[in-house]
Design a protein around this nucleic acid. Structure first.
Lengths: 195, 195, 195, 195
DNA sequence: AATGAATGAGGATTCATTCAT
DNA sequence: GATGAATGAATCCTCATTCAT
């Protein structure tokens, strides 16, 4: 067995384990030992690769945001009109990679982490800014100057749906979530021209 | 100094200190000692009055929800039409007692707490259910059978605004927040009768 | 209600509560608060009357030994021959006041207390010495110079029966216990002359 | 210093330190920190290896019982007749490993522990049952059907001697203790054949 | 006489992190 | 590269004890 090139494998395993453990615990009260165990290694090794617990959390966050970014890009690739792109953005936000109990719990906790950790806050801010600018970009042809305002509403609505989902009380599937946001947006945009 | 009847005073002090500390820390990683110190007593006394840390957190949560409930009732009292009541509900959600950095941080963390603690989950669920049923009640005269759906959108929107506020990035004041939600709702409701 | 003359009542209540709590807990890990609560008063009052926890334990110990002393004297009063007195001593050791789960647990724990507390050790030593001298006194007419040796055996046997009883495993009632010790002693003493 | 395979060494050290500390304190009021310190390590490491204090106590108890078991087996190996085996059993009970202040204090406290802890109770019960069945087995050729009764007497006598020893008052050495129990038993058995 | 109020001192337990191998 | 070993620094919680009333 080659001992070289293990680094990316180990790091991936830790990142995934981190998300899984946060999901399981429903909070950031997760020990490095738990994460490492799930990732199949010693906690010492986790430290070796990441330096400290904060870095592990940040890497996990980066991973979630990266996957989300991929989902968005993939969805946008298939879209051909502004309205399709808009739908793609919302769909991506609720796509199966994202709208999963584990990931939702992770998102919620990343918001909490962002209260304490400046790097975490920055990561989340970047994601929000990107979503907003995407939304504005695709809304402008449809609604003109009210695009920023409506984009903000849509973004907030998406976040709100996530937050409520985190309570698992009146759970929705990803399709209903997408529909709900798109239907709400529909009224703001005005009757469809194409879509 | 009276040496009797301290219990309610101490409990209040602890509850307030808890919210303040959660706000300061931006997380539930707050020690009983910190809370007790801010409340001006020993941690032993905090345990004496609340039994354990969870109970302290729950009491703090109950307090926040109670204050919110008061705000809602006060706002509703002045409202005279369904539409006014609707506006009152949204306004109360963003009223100055609620839309304060400290309280917002507390809310966010209570959502996290609800992931772990069944009593906490129940408390939040009650609050959500009450908000929803209030919204539905006042929307029905305005929009008929779509009331539940629109109520859900409004509730999600409110939560979303809170969540984004928690990042303190593009901070809104409570008026803008209220306006944003009401404007968004306006489109769904339509200018049926009046205000 | 007269407030005077409460002291002996309170002290008795505390002593009884102490024994009961030690019995319940099966150990000396009993808090002053628990004892005071069972005795129907505040722990502060318990301290007022006894000074500190050690004194409470010692008083409880003294009480148990005193009751035992009474039982012995009462039993001896009815006895008319050395052999009857001997039987009376053994019977008293297993009489219903003594051979009760609560009291047995207390005895066992007093032996433990005696390891740490010199006054406790002295109390137990006094009890042992008195039992021994009683036994010797009544054995001498029956067995002559071997009395001290046989007394020691009987005393040890009694203690051993107590110790095994503490495990509640192969529980005996007080009659069987008495019989067992007396039968054992019988052999050492030789065939009965009177009794 | 080897940095691997420390576990058994550490566990042994902790077990011995536990017995020593219980002996020193004369009670179970011994902190993990004290035990760990005597064993030459941090209390965190003690927890790492044993999980919690109860497990440490149980391990210490198991150790004492195991050593006793070894002593018994070793003594029995040299015995050739029932009577010799009987003497061996009693001797082993008072052998130098057992009849040591530290170990006696430990035994006494394990009896107390057994009041609270079910596993502890089971351990003691096993030891008692084994001793009894050994005694019965070797008494039967000597006394026939009264073997169980006499076994019980002997067992109780042994325990009683231990209990009295715990007070350190009229301390015996292990030879006198053995003699005392064997002499007492002699009368019950009768000088049937010889040894 | 009686108690609620209050705390300092501790004790079990956890955990991130470091280190030697 | 990998890990078991090890610990200091917390943190929750308990409790005997004191004090003001």
């Amino acid at each position: 067995m080659p001992k070289v090139g293990m680094e990316p494998i180990r790091r991936d395993a830790l990142v995934n384990a981190t998300i899984a453990e946060i999901g399981r615990a429903g909070s950031l009260d997760v020990t490095v030992a738990q994460i490492a165990k799930r990732a199949g290694m010693s906690s010492a090794l986790a430290h070796h690769y990441f330096g400290n617990k904060d870095q592990i959390f940040l890497a996990a966050m980066r991973h979630v945001l990266t996957v989300y970014g991929h989902d968005v890009r993939a969805a946008l690739k298939k879209a051909e009109s502004p309205r399709e792109r808009l739908e793609a953005l919302v769909e991506a936000s609720f796509c199966v990679h994202q709208f999963d109990d584990e990931i939702i719990a992770a998102w919620l906790n990343f918001y909490v982490l962002a209260q304490t950790s400046e790097p975490a806050r920055r990561l989340l801010a970047v994601y929000q800014k990107r979503l907003l600018s995407n939304l504005v970009h695709d809304l402008r042809p449809l609604v003109g100057d009210t695009a920023p305002m409506i984009a903000l509403r849509i973004a907030a609505l998406i976040d709100g749906v996530y937050l409520r989902q985190a309570l698992r009380d009146r759970a929705m599937d990803n399709h209903s979530a997408t529909r709900m946001v798109l239907d709400a947006a529909e009224t703001w945009i005005g009757r469809k021209t194409d879509a």
